[in-house]
Design a protein around this nucleic acid. Sequence first.
DNA 1: AGAACTATGTTTTTT
DNA 2: ACATAGTTCT
Length: 715
Amino acid sequence: MNTNVHNSGLNPAQHAAVNHGSGPVLVIAGAGSGKTRTLVYRMAHLLGQGIAPESILLLTFTRKAAQEMLWRAGQLTDDSSNRIMGGTFHATANILLRQYGHFLGLGARFSIIDRGDAEGIINLIKSSLGLSGAGKRFPSKRIIMNFISGSINKSRTIDDLVYESSPHLSEFVEDFHSIRQHYDQFKLDHGLMDYDDLLVNWQRLLTESPEAKEMICNRFQYILVDEYQDTNLIQAHIIRLLASNHDNVMVVGDDSQSIYSFRGADFYNIMRFEQQFPGAEVITLEENYRSTQPILELTNAVIRNAEEKFTKSLFSNIEGDIRPTLYTAKNEAAEARYIVKTIRELRNQDIPVNEIAVLFRSGFHSYKLEMEMTSNYLSFEKRGGMKLTESAHIKDVLAFFRILVNPWDNLSWNRILLQLDKVGPKTAQKIIAFIKESDTPTSALANFTPGKTWKEGFGKLVQIITEIDKPELTPSAVYDKVMEYYLPIFEKIYYDDYPKRRKELDQISALVSGYGDIQSFVDDTTLDPPENTDVQAGQDGEDRIILSTIHSAKGLEWDVVFVMGLAEGRFPHQNATPGPQWEEERRLLYVAATRAKKHLYLTYPTELVAADRQHIRTGMSPYLREIPQGLYVKDEIDKRPAYMQQSSPEPAFQSTRKKQSARTTYATGGVVKHPYFGIGRVVSILGPQRVEVAFDRHGTKILHLDYANLETIES
DNA sequence: AGAACTATGTTTTTT
DNA sequence: ACATAGTTCT
């Protein structure tokens, strides 16, 4: 193996980390200081020392990050075999539990549930306990889930959490406890594990089973952890246990980039590291290799006012004297226009499109911008917000895969049965109760006697389940058969926006073909849900501008970064309370701004539209107000000549949803064109937003004008 | 009683 | 675009 690792242009601090012998190391590294690079070289160094790849464990924040790092380490060592184990805590827990879970008496068959599933269970319990009829005052499933999950990954009691964060809910504490008990029992009964269970059971593996602990600890001799500030107490404990034989742990983190406390992350883990691992070497990386000095000066100003005292002050040697730009927009539409206009100018300066990103606090803050970009033919990719696997039709399809992996997965059975016409929640539960008694629920389904009205649909279901319940089938083969069954149902349920959803199903088809076994397909789609990339604007292979929530932008960088929606009430988030939450929002802005390499644009609207369509005037985010004025320049588009303010003329047929009135736009007998169904004739107008259209080849459909995107051919 | 339909409300961030 | 509550249909 080659060792040109030594001539790699690392700075002395990075070099010290990479070449560290054995024993614990804490690397405190600022934004853009080459954290990832350091870890990659560290892996290469270990391999160069003759350490077996199998004995290295790399834990990162996303699976993608791990794959990227492993690939780069492989490049450095000319070893592409990639036998280093690397991934997220949760994915690693999944693998280890499937291998060693029997030491805890865990069944081999368990399936992993995401947050949506968990909330679904909470809801079932809520109604079975008679809590949902109690009026709106009873807290929503999401809030309940926060307390249950929080009590695990923050290592606190539900009572404490309620008292601290929402004292007005304390009257419900008993109900929360009861719901939690039922929730835990439900998961046990149906072989389900949520994200918290994965970590807790990994921890149990290391504390309750000496055999498992020995096997795992002997297996991994070197532990590397990225983004350590985002670990929670359980994860820190797991690291401590994993390394109990050898203390060969390197953790890398940045306390000023901790933005995940809402799910239990505790950046004090960094401060505690030296107590947990006495004698740990501490290395600080302060040089920034990403951003120009003017950008750093602004980001340093953002973080300077933090209540916690952070240790680092970043400096950069990168040339560049362009100060960040601040733009104050009249409203959200003007903000979107400004961003689009500026992107165009940048593109004319030959800045590649894939070096531009727009970041925001919450998924819906970009809606206006998405519309503006679509009508200007700028293609974009949105990250954060809804995941592909969170939409109903995708879940419908995945449910078939999940019952194959775990036939006791009640949730998935429920989904599948509810697709049948004339079968509702009650009937579904009856069927599930019946098949649950059997050793092989999938084949027991055929023995259930269906009701008269839904006998036919049920027969088809039994047939398809029998067909796919064969271990020798590949995931792709299962997918094809499932679609054969599901498509007619699908078309009926989602007649409104059939084409768009259909495209998403095709994405799943592409995804499933990459898997050899169903188990790993199901696990991966839950642990690492694919983004729902909006492909409607732009073709495949075309570079797209990234629109992303700040959380999803973590660890990435672009030449040009816009941070939008920096208005009071939007950033920090409306419900953020003074104290730790307020400080976390500040760090969030810090993370956003430090993604920029050359150009940073900060924008905010002075008027927001509330949920009730009221226009509310607002000012700039308090964090911006704290920044000395000399650190940015103000751009004033409104003072430019009028012709520059115009965005391009609207295309004749655009996909943005304009409010149309069926009665004024369409008439019975008119000819219309639908992007998927083709040419059709209006049969009747059913309401202000709904028309019934007879299509030449697809029969008669009822279309909702908000979604259907109809084009008038002849009225 | 249970399914299906309609109107209304709402939206932090995510492994 | 979803979830929920309230209403109507079978």
